[in-house]
Design a protein around this nucleic acid. Structure first.
Lengths: 120, 120
DNA sequence: GTACTTGCAAATACTTTGCAGGTAT
DNA sequence: ATACCTGCAAAGTATTTGCAAGTAC
């Protein structure tokens, strides 16, 4: 179960994890998927990601503490990822100046991707 | 209906808008709240904000295009706001380098606020 | 046996839709 | 009358919980 998430490229919805495991022949219930994901999130082994369609997505945390954020195309729904040192620096500075001990953060950019912008 | 949102300090859930309007004596249905919020979001007059508890929140857009982002305390649930020019710059740069025409973006920082960190 | 985990089904929560009644043109 | 907007109730999702059965110690 845990392994499945790890081998995925990017964030998956609980339903997608469920379907994926079922496709592998594993007999698992959707409830267990939610239960495991919940535990993993508590352990900081996966991150919850809300890309804004009312679905919570999950993605495996990277060992080195590396992480990335998401670019979502409003037109075609495509999801891209990025990371940026300056952005991270700005985030830490902001959190610090508000006295927050930062645990986690999430950045979602929405817009039109190259392809969709070209179409218009 | 529109006025109510405008006079609120920060993001509200649909349920909160509904309750608030009801408290004012307005006889409105929850469905209309969702309908109006949906229209307003299309018109870019309100922003959808997902703070990650499975509830979509809404907040009025500021006339000048100014906006802010959110700091959420994982312990007490308190929500703080901030804005930061360097952060915005970094975001635009990232979007540009991926060829995205940026429409909207959302930044959510999670951690412990001053009060909760002091308690431990 | 007890303690823990599982999958299913039922329950809950949030949001959307269908519809009858009302208002304005 | 037509077109539009409303509120209620029902339907539709996504997620969580209750529970009986299964496993390990």
């Amino acid at each position: 179960v845990i392994g499945y998430l790890a081998e995925q490229a990017c964030c998956l919805s609980a339903q997608e994890v469920f379907d994926g495991l079922r496709a592998q022949g594993r007999s698992i219930g959707i409830a267990s998927v939610y239960r495991v994901l919940d535990q993993l999130a508590d352990l900081r082994l996966v991150h919850r990601v809300e890309l804004g369609q009312g679905v919570t997505r999950f993605e495996a945390a990277q060992p080195g503490g590396e992480h990335h954020h998401h670019l979502v195309c409003d037109d075609c729904g495509k999801v891209d990822t990025f990371d940026d040192a300056e952005l991270e620096r700005a985030l830490r500075r902001v959190a610090g100046s508000h006295g927050y001990a930062l645990d986690e953060h999430e950045v979602v950019l929405r817009g039109s991707c190259t392809d969709c912008a070209a179409l218009g």
